[in-house]
Amino acid sequence: MPRTAVRRLIDTLPATLLPIAAGAALAWAVAWAVGLSGLDAARGLLAATAFTLLLVAPALLLGAGLGALAGAWAGLPPHSGGGWTGRALIAAGPLLPGFLLAALAALAVRSGAAAAPLAWAALALPAACHAARLARPAMSAALTSDALRMAEGLGLDDRTVLRHLALPAALAPVTGGFANAALSALAGATAVESLLDLPGLGALLIDAARVGSLSGSLPALMALCGLAGLLRALGSALGGWLQRVTGAGR
């Protein structure tokens, strides 16, 4: 990742890490107030945050990346295998919310399947559908744009036109919509963690809510909000990096 993208990510870190730190501090204070180890409570919240991040971020990045490529491919004539995959993802998008896939994953795990790949798949698939849904119309619009026709008129070959003009235009809305995909993934992760009894922030939040504990759920909610901001910043940094890699605007 180039320096500018990393710098962009670092710039947003204080604002995104602040809610997580505040959540940890609150967990520490609440535990200390009831005579428990505050350090253990804060450490538990940070461990749950790291777990949820490890569950959501790879699934989100992989799903969004593959979905964006499939969606962009679906916008390209003639129709190919990748294009049909993109079309299938776009059509299936509203049918496959993360929490429903989480339930199917839980069912498979109860039947003896491994939890980790299914949990990642349950979160990656909706992200892929979301990305494909955004990339396809953007690619179709890019293919009929004046800039592309001018580039072709200037004698640039198809591959260069596709890489430097059409693909960045198709990927731009995906990175723009990364925040929405991240929020959906966090909701899906909550369902995954709760149904599979995984030690993440979502499970912590729901367990505390079930017993009606505000002091238990508030730190988890604050950390989840921080995590949403962190993922949004990651998407923004990734968008900047992709623009540089594809040479958009050059």
Binding site: L183, G202, L205, A209, L221, L224, C225
Partner: peptide, 17 residues
Amino acid sequence: VALPLALLVPLGVGLTG
């Protein structure tokens, strides 16, 4: 819109009964 509002629903239901 940028917050995980969907999670506030189960949280609110749990806290309010």
